[in-house]
Nucleic acid binder design. Structure first.
Length: 348
DNA sequence: TCTGGGGTCCTAGGACCC
DNA sequence: TCTGGGGTCCTAGGACCC
């Protein structure tokens, strides 16, 4: 089962701002009355009726619907609600895997006997979340993660869709390849050019030809196109990297401004690193220039948990690599190669 | 209309070691 | 004189997902 909260961020805002209920509403990064440089993160279905979509520049949404409710993102608040939802969901599953703030896989293989049973079980979960938290969700049920996930897409909003083993082929046939999980814009364009525009065509594709073009991914795509997915629902997930980024209000070439941003980002990264009790080895600085081209610069150091090492390394990476002929739009700081930090002992 | 931020995984070349 | 194969780690870039 894949359970996905409907328009989660806006739904959270509706909980604490009931006055926006019944209005088109948008949660976005830096809304600033439509003047900010952010995008729509989530919008409710009323806003979607006007053509507003997540990922759309907030300025565009504002032109379409200036009188919608625009709210700034508050990740801490959404995570708090998310924690309550996940705690409610967990007992319904034999194995439970949270995949994002608003999504989780539940292995319920031993809890239900057939598809009717699954439908009833899913409805119980849906109603429980609605009554306890006040948020609606959509639920997809299938023989594996891939089908559950894609069934959930069909179920949205506020619905339940069960796809049985024998229905998988019918469910996938005729679907655009871009709808298949893991196949985005670039890959679907390439597949279309090769004559594999639909999932059923991809399912029967020449494997050698696909692997020649895409490597192991070519094999995986064919498996997915045939509805085959043997990924397990994995309970204990370990974070692999921690990062923070920010977009400047105006593109900049000012070292003082960049340094201040590095200080801030490093501060937040370290807070998260400490919360997760990790040390790190690799430091990555990301630069996006005014022309939208991104570059990353990284360096591995001795295993450390020191904020000053993080800050100094980032500033060095910046000075050694920045292209002075362009201005910087966005800056990112990330640490990876994480190792569990053991107790109070300093790692030398 | 002008484009966010949090992540994961894969690839490929080069350095280095045995 | 010209030359191996296996493996790991590092860096940079890119696709994708939510």
């Amino acid at each position: 089962m894949l359970i996905d909260m409907d328009y989660f961020y806006v739904a959270c805002e509706e909980l604490r701002h009931p006055e926006i209920l019944g209005r088109p509403a948008v949660v976005g990064m830096y809304p600033k009355g439509g003047a900010g440089r952010g995008v729509v993160m989530t919008c409710n279905y009323m806003a979607r009726e006007f053509g507003i979509r997540s990922g759309m520049p907030i300025s565009m949404a504002y032109k379409i619907k200036p009188d919608a409710a625009y709210l700034p993102v508050d990740f801490d608040y959404y995570e708090q609600i998310s924690g309550r939802v996940m705690k409610l969901l967990k007992p319904f599953a034999e194995k439970f895997e949270q995949v994002s703030v608003d999504e989780a896989f539940l292995d319920v293989s031993g809890k239900v006997s057939d598809h009717r049973d699954a439908q009833i079980y899913a409805k119980r979960i849906h109603d429980h979340v609605l009554s306890e938290i006040g948020i609606r969700c959509s639920i997809g049920v299938g023989p594996n993660k891939l089908i559950a996930k894609m069934a959930c897409e069909k179920a949205k909003p506020d619905g339940i869709k069960v796809v049985q083993e024998g229905e998988v082929k019918d469910f996938l046939d005729g679907l655009d390849v871009g709808k298949l999980y893991g196949i985005g814009e670039k890959t679907s364009e390439r597949l279309r050019k090769m004559g594999y525009g639909t999932v059923d065509r991809l399912a029967k594709a020449n494997e050698m030809r696909l692997m020649d073009q895409f490597g192991i991914f070519g094999h995986e795509m064919i498996m997915f196109a045939n509805g085959i997915d043997d990924r397990d629902v994995t309970e204990n997930y370990d974070v692999k990297s921690i990062g923070r980024e920010l977009t400047f209000e105006h593109n900049t070439a000012d070292d003082k401004e960049v340094d201040a941003a590095i200080d801030r980002l490093a501060e937040e990264v370290m807070r998260e690193v400490e919360k997760n009790k990790k040390s790190f080895k690799t430091i990555t600085l990301k630069l996006r220039y005014g022309d939208f081209i991104e570059h990353i610069h990284s360096r591995s150091v001795r295993l450390t948990d020191s904020k000053s090492t993080l800050i100094d390394t980032c500033k060095e990476l910046y000075r050694n690599n920045v292209d002075r002929s362009r201005k910087v739009r966005k800056l990112g700081v990330r640490v990876s190669n994480l190792v569990d930090y053991r107790g109070q002992r300093k790692i030398i």
